[in-house]
């Protein structure tokens, strides 16, 4: 059972990375328009180099 010494911190670390990613997404306002973002992938026009989005859309 010594393996637990590595596995538990590892699982916590991975979970923590997920949590940090969630915080980042939240701060980045990615939950602002879920319906619109879902539909945006269906837009017929696309760019090779999309401009950075305005954060307060």
């Amino acid at each position: 059972m010594d393996i637990l010494i590595y596995l538990i911190p590892a699982s916590l670390l991975l979970g923590g990375i997920g949590l940090a990613a969630f915080f980042w997404a939240l701060k980045d306002r990615q939950f602002e328009d879920p319906l619109g973002d879902a539909n945006r992938i269906l837009k017929p026009d696309w760019e090779d180099h999309p401009a950075p989005q305005s954060k307060s859309a």
Binding site: E32, D33, N39, S54, A57
Partner: peptide, 12 residues
């Protein structure tokens, strides 16, 4: 620029 927010039904 114009950006539609579909969840809130508005465009800015």
């Amino acid at each position: 620029s114009a950006r539609v927010n579909l969840s809130l039904r508005r465009v800015s």
